[in-house]
Simulated assay, not measured.
Amino acid sequence: MDFRQLHYFVAVVEEGSLSAASRRVHIAQPALTRQIHALEEKLQVSLFERHTRGMTLTVAGQALYEEAGKMLENREQVMARIRALGQGLTGKVTLGVTVSHLWVPDIRRLLARFRDDYPQVALEVYPLLSGPQGERLKEGSIDAGFLYLEDRVPDFLQSHLFHRDHLVLAVPAGSPLVASPPARVRALNEFDFVWGPRHTSPLYYDRLSAYFTRLGLVPRVVQQGADNITILSLVAAGLGISIVPGDCRWSSPPGVHFIDMAELRECDMSIHFAWNRHNHSPALQNFIHIVQGSPAPADG
């Protein structure tokens, strides 16, 4: 059904005459008459009884009028919903965030700003290590993520440097290293380490292992944790020391002391915001715009 003709029909009914209705809908009366006749021909019914003193609705016309309001209202609601989706004002954005960065202030502020700017968009955040994030970005099960990236970014991804960071030494609060931190990383070979298994995040594991090898460090691993939060919990319990990104300070349990070392500061552990270049979701594009408009990343 032609919604324009339906709109004209409602105007004629509510105004009570063709002349008044033509003024309301801003078309000439002859054109309006033709549109009403066209609607009747399409429906193969008479909608009005026409007589010298005006027009009255037929039974079919009354039935159409009772439904017309709902049809026009539903049409407006559908159009408004489609416009909102097309502009990214509604919908959903799914994000991965590395476990260590869920509490980083820059990310928390970004999420809060997006919620303020787009309150009708559902925001789903998943704590995921960098490796699983990359896999889910490739398959499209998340829209974007905050993660570590290799120097060569996969072809299917686009990325934006979001936050600079570097490595730090994490030791139990009661460790002698608190009072006498080592000058060189190789001095840590004599200490027990808490570390993570390679399969949980191969990119992160290999990156750190290669860097430690250059510095002459071969960690003596006595305990493993699935992620940095678990690792820091084991450090706090006195089971060993570890080396983690500096941003882990934001999610660390009590009992862990962090030590900055010149050699560790040189290892870039920056976080990138990345998304699948084939994902054209308007809501995601709005999120990307906010990320790219955030202040330039500073070293944490």
Rank of each mutant, 00 (worst) to 15 (best):
D2K: 04
R4D: 07
Y8S: 00
F9V: 05
A11K: 07
E14N: 06
L18A: 01
L18V: 01
S19G: 08
A20P: 06
S22F: 02
R34T: 01
K42H: 13
S46Y: 09
M55G: 03
M55C: 05
T56Y: 04
L57H: 05
T58M: 07
G61N: 03
A63K: 13
Y65C: 01
A68Q: 08
M71I: 15
E73D: 14
E73G: 10
N74F: 10
Q77H: 10
V78N: 05
V78E: 13
I82W: 09
R83G: 06
R83W: 06
R83K: 14
T94S: 14
V99P: 03
H101P: 01
W103Y: 15
R113D: 15
D116V: 11
D116E: 15
V121G: 02
V121H: 08
A122T: 09
L123G: 00
V125I: 15
L128F: 11
G131V: 01
P132D: 03
G134M: 12
R136L: 11
K138I: 02
S141R: 08
L147K: 00
L147H: 07
Y148D: 01
V153A: 03
P154D: 09
D155Q: 14
L157W: 05
R164Y: 04
D165L: 04
H166V: 02
H166C: 08
L167K: 11
A173R: 09
G174V: 05
S175D: 10
A183V: 06
N189E: 11
E190K: 15
V194N: 08
P197C: 09
R198H: 13
R198I: 04
H199G: 03
H199S: 09
P202C: 13
P202A: 10
D206N: 15
L217S: 01
L217A: 02
Q223H: 15
G225H: 10
A226Q: 14
T230C: 09
L232P: 05
S233C: 12
L234P: 06
G240W: 08
V244F: 07
H257K: 07
I259A: 12
M261S: 01
L264R: 08
R265L: 05
D268H: 11
M269C: 06
A274K: 04
W275Q: 01
N279G: 04
F287R: 00
I288P: 04
V291R: 02
S294Y: 14
